[in-house]
Every structure is written in structure tokens, then in C-alpha cells.
Design a protein around this nucleic acid. Structure first.
Lengths: 371, 371
DNA sequence: CTGTTAGCGCATTCAC
DNA sequence: GTGAATGCGCTAACAG
């Protein structure tokens, strides 16, 4: 009973507040924007009271309309189902929080059409910039990005015709770390399993690095003279298996190939030297691929499938620890955070040429690749 | 070279289009809003051309400001890390898509403070409604929801002082299904493991249903005369273990209790009758709890921990299939979809009293509870 | 220090 | 059929 229940059907506007405080809208606006130096303590108190009483909250839309910026940025994710995306998201949120930005999160759900629509929607809401984990975009997207007007930063994947900032994993290094680890452990056959590499640069880079290393060229070499065991492919054979998760039939076929290899009586070529408990290792290019493999192997070979094949994957999903799978963890949080920082600089007017930020992955050794 | 490269630093406005089409803004507006009947075919063509040429896209903000609705709704999620949230999100997106709404996704990251801030932010952006997977809200949130002005629908959890629509799992039924399953399988000791139940209604409901059933009252009874095996607790003992995932120390203590029980030489009371390969079953109230348990058990008892304890959980995370854990899958997609539908009706002015929509869970039996 | 004026981009009467 | 005003809620010059 003490205060008038302000169950106002209509939200209070700046005009209401001005009237209630017995002043003009300008002063209210000044108060809201922290121009405190220009307000007498007395007026300020009245304004505060009025705002409190009316439960006034400035309309961001109107505000944005006027000053031409709404503090909104778009975050377009290809697949929220991938833990990677959620983790990146967290970094993005933290950074936005720190910079006073509000992320509009959009989920393309692996549909190129969705991606296009969301991009269009975002420009329609006049976001000041976008962070995109691209799916199938090319040059035409550039146009969708407001005729080249609105700043964009790419995450994980670069886009062919687009000269934009990009932040992601150091794919080459990550693939090399994984491959070397497998080589050191003495596997004599390594399959790199990856989704179709066309369109997605990170997949391509990982696969290329793997292939290059396996073909004996030794990768991008570390510091010379470093005491690192110089692992070379030696007799180890490598190949790439493409797993198109979007197509059940194709997946079945690829997995059949794998099963065939697993059921060969013995190593066709080198039936000699040291006996390896498991000679074949699977290097999954990301978590979804790894999960698909694991599910199949478990269904096919039972709970102890890990005694038949070793699995290693880029990405560190929550089930990796549970199943003892060695992984290469991406600095996902940092990736998201950095992406926002880049974008923010761009929004603030930075004009430099497109930058790349490659962050290192971390090998987490578990039972799957031991012995 | 054919068209003038419209690398306009400033986006085209409705005025630009009007000028380019040699007409007034009104006609453009009409065109945009589909009032085609009021446009001569000739004018229409000119407008289309102008829009195309200028790459014009109406400003949703200005539009919203004018007509008082911006088609924005807020989706406030307590924890995106929980697969449950992501799945609900997908349903929400689909429904929004169908209804022409745009969801503003906010992630409270389990921080009550974040939740409060986002709620405030959302009202500041004048969303037309919110879908809330509440964290620690109570009556005061109601005020934050725009003085009771903006429609809200709750997901998974109800809030004490708030009479809002709510959609979620039929928690009681789900808990009963799980408990019955365990009873049927002959476990003679069942622990219900749950995060602190204060504040979160769904946890409380699940725990209560479990306890009630275990105490012998038989649950909410099925159809009379149904041929269902009438499972009664019999000699089976039940208890509740609280696992506060936010507090490492508490978790450690709770897990220690569990270990103690697991290391008892034999069933203290009923050392008789049929031999059960595993007499203790853990009924996890949700996926995060289950994961925590599984990780601990694996670390403590090795890869074959499942031979010592059975695990069952509400939620069906991706690792469940991989580890053969029996689960109760929630109709997450539908939950999200229905939530939006409810909200939409409310936005359209529906005034009826608060409704509850309880959807059934589905038991997915896997190896963990077999034998 | 404070109030007045003029738009931001658009939808909507209301006249022509 | 069509176009000229008016104002949504707010900020940004300008005056006092």
C-alpha cells in the first residue's frame, strides 16, 4: 500500500520520466548517459526518484535508432550441437559482457539456407558486426553482409572470397601434434577421418598437415637442435577416410571400409618386428566424427573395442575422459573471446588488413593411445 | 561493371528507395508490408527495381519502434553446457522460425546475477516475451519482467511467486518409470542422486516421486486391472544423495559416502536369496549428475565400473549410448516448441490463467541396467 | 546548468 | 491508387 502499484500496461518513456521529475527529456537523457557533471545534485535526485518510481528502463531500440549503433553483434554458429560451438560461445559472451556488447546468437543447424537467412536477418536488425562460424558461405555472403559494410570475423573457418579477420585453432600444428603422438606410440597405420573437406578450411588444413607429415616430409619442423625425438613416419602408413555425417549411406560405406581393414588377418605388408597390441589408429578430425566412429566400433566390436583400434581426436568432448580417449583440446574459450575483441576493434573503426589469430591446441593423453 | 557497385558506407533507407523509385515513402512501406492490392503494377515494378538496386533492407529497429512490436523474444537458459538446453533451443528455434519470431538467446551460465542482468537487458530491448529456464528467480524477477507486463513461459522449472505458463517433463512420471525399471531389474538398493533441490522445482518433483515410490505407497498407480507387473519396493532400500556440482568439496564428500557403500563386504541386511551381480543402482536426476558420477566411478574402479554399480539417468546425453547407460529421454525439442507456442498465444493477447504442459519421458534401456 | 528543436527510419492516418 | 504529414522513444546540436 505504500507505493502506487505501477502495473502500467505501457512502459514508461523518457517523456513520462521528464514529466514526473518536473524537467525536460534532455536532462533525463543526460542522466542516463552518465553526464553527471551537468546535473545539479537536486535535479539528479528528482530524476533518480522518478526513474525508480516509474520503473523506467530506456528503450534500446529507440536509442540505437537515434545514435546509429545498438551494441548488438551477431554470432552465427554452424552447429550448436557440437560442444565446440558452445564453448566458443562462452568466450564470446564473456567478452561481450566486458565490452558492453549484446550477442544475437543464431544457429544455422548445419543448413546453408538457414545461414543465409540469419545473416540477412542480422543485417536487418542492424547489428554492428558479426562473428561467423561459417557453413557454406562464399563471396555472395559478402554481399549479404550488408554490401561489405558490416564488419565480420570468422571463427575456425576462413571463407574463400572474404578478406576478414579470422581466429581459430592452429590446425596445422594440431594435426602434426596428433600425428606425431601416434607415430611415437608406434602405430604403424593411421587413418585420418574427416568430414568432407570442401568448403571448410579447417578440415582441409588438418587433413593436409596430416598427409604431408605422413608422406615423410616431416612437417613444418620445430626449432632446430631441439632435443625432440625426431619422429618420422617410418614404415607407418597413412590414409584419409571421409565421413560425410550428413549422409547415412555414405557413412555406412566408409565404416564398412574401416571394418574390412580391421578384419584383415594381419598387417598385409610388415608382418615382422615388434608386436603392437593395436596397430591401427584413427585420428578423428573433430568430435562429431570421433563420436560416430566410437559408436560404430562399440556396436560392432563390443565394449572392448578400444583394444582393436586406437582413437584420437581434435576437440575434447565431455565423453572423452569417460571413455579414455586421447584428444587435442582447442582453446575454445579464448577463440571466442579473441573473436569479439577483433570485431570490437573493427567496429571502433580499425581499418588494417585482415588478420589471422591461430591459437595452439593441447594434447591430452589418455588410455586410448597408450601402450 | 554492369551495375554500380553499391559499396555504400551508409545503408539505404526507405527515403532513398522512395527517391530512387520516384515516389513517396508510403508506397514503399505498403510494398514492404504486402499491401500489394494498393499498388499499380507499374509502380510496383519500379519499387522492386529500386530495392534491388540499392540492396535495401528495412530497419527492424525503426519498424519495431513505430508499430510497438519487434518480433523479438528472449530465451534465457540457465546452462548451455547441459545438452538439455541445446536441445530445447532447437525446438524454440524451429517454432520461432515458423511464427516469424526472432529469439534472443541468453546464457546465464549458472550465475544468478547473470540471469538478473539478462532479464533486465531483455526488457530493455523490448522483447515481446521471454522463455525462461530459471535459475534462482523468485517474485522479484516478476518485477524485473517489466512490472508484470511482459509475457513469460517457464521451461522445466516453475517459480514460486510466478503464475506463468510452464512446459516441461512430467517429472513425477519420469521418476516413477525409472524407479520401477530399477525395481523390476531386481536391484535391492537404489540411490537417487540429485543436485540441491531447493529453488529448482523439477529436481524436487523427481526426488519426491522417487522417495514416495520407494516408501511403498506405490506411486500414482496405473490403470486398475492393467496387467502390469505390480512392482513394489519389497525389500529394496532407497535413499537420496545430494550432489552439489557447484562445490567441489561437497561433491567429494558425497562421493566418499558412495564409495563407502560400494565397499561394504556384502548386503548388510538381506544376505540371502538370489545373487545380484550388482545390487546397487544409481538413479541420476539429470545428465550433469550422471556424468559426474560416471567420471568418478571410472576413475575409482576402472573401466569396468559398471559391473559394480548400475547407472540410470534422466536426460539422454550423447555419451549414454557410447557407455551403454540406460536413460529417460526428455522430449526436449517438443518442450522448446510448445514453449514458444504458449508464449506466442500470450503475446497475441491470450489472457487465460497459467497453464502447465507436462510431456512424457521415454525410457531407453541399455546395458547398464541389464541382468 | 537546463530546456527547445530537430530528426533517426519507419507505419499510419488522412487527404488528394 | 497515391503521397504529405505526424509521431514512436530517444539523442544531439543549439540556445538560454
Amino acid at each position: 500500500m505504500s507505493s502506487t502499484p505501477p502495473l502500467a500496461p505501457r512502459r514508461a518513456t523518457i517523456t513520462d520520466v521528464a514529466r514526473a521529475a518536473g524537467t525536460g527529456k534532455t536532462s533525463i537523457s543526460r542522466y542516463l548517459n552518465g553526464e553527471l557533471g551537468a546535473l545539479s545534485a537536486e535535479l539528479r535526485a528528482r530524476i533518480e526518484a522518478a526513474i525508480e518510481r516509474l520503473d523506467y528502463q530506456p528503450n534500446q531500440m529507440a536509442r540505437g535508432l537515434k545514435r546509429g549503433r545498438n551494441r548488438l553483434i551477431g554470432l552465427l554458429l554452424a552447429d550448436l550441437t557440437n560442444p565446440y560451438s558452445v564453448e566458443v560461445l562462452q568466450g564470446v559472451e564473456a567478452a561481450c559482457h566486458a565490452l558492453g556488447l549484446m550477442p544475437l546468437i543464431c544457429h544455422a543447424a548445419n543448413e546453408v539456407e538457414m545461414e543465409r537467412r540469419y545473416l540477412q536477418l542480422l543485417t536487418t536488425y542492424r547489428v554492428e558486426g558479426v562473428i561467423v562460424n561459417a557453413l557454406g558461405v562464399r563471396e555472395d555472403t559478402l554481399r549479404a553482409l550488408g554490401g561489405g559494410g558490416i564488419p565480420a570475423v570468422l571463427v575456425d573457418r576462413s571463407v574463400d572470397g572474404l578478406a576478414a579477420d579470422m581466429v581459430g585453432l592452429d590446425n596445422r600444428a594440431a594435426a602434426e601434434i596428433g600425428t606425431r603422438h601416434l607415430l611415437e606410440k608406434g602405430f604403424d597405420e593411421i587413418w585420418f577421418v574427416v568430414q568432407p573437406v570442401e568448403q571448410v578450411s579447417s578440415r582441409r588444413l588438418r587433413e593436409e598437415a596430416f598427409r604431408k607429415l605422413m608422406s615423410g616430409s616431416g612437417g613444418a619442423g620445430g626449432k632446430r637442435g631441439r632435443a625432440r625425438k625426431d619422429v618420422s613416419p617410418g614404415a607407418a602408413r597413412g590414409r584419409t577416410l571421409v565421413l560425410n555425417l550428413a549422409d547415412t549411406a555414405e557413412v555406412g560405406q566408409a565404416l564398412a571400409e574401416l571394418d574390412a581393414a580391421l578384419n584383415e588377418p594381419a598387417s598385409a605388408t610388415s608382418a615382422t618386428t615388434r608386436r603392437a597390441p593395436r596397430r591401427l589408429a584413427l585420428f578423428a578430425a573433430n568430435a562429431p566424427v570421433a563420436l560416430c566412429l566410437a559408436l560404430h566400433l562399440k556396436a560392432r566390436y563390443g565394449d572392448d573395442w578400444q583394444t582393436r583400434v586406437a582413437l584420437l581426436c581434435i576437440d575434447d568432448p565431455e565423453w572423452a575422459e569417460l571413455t579414455g580417449v586421447t584428444t587435442i583440446r582447442q582453446p575454445t574459450y579464448d577463440i571466442g573471446y579473441r573473436a569479439v575483441e577483433f570485431l570490437h576493434q573493427r567496429i571502433e573503426g580499425l581499418e588494417s588488413h585482415a588478420r589471422d589469430c591461430l591459437l595452439p591446441g593441447e594434447l591430452i593423453v589418455r588410455a586410448s593411445t597408450s601402450l
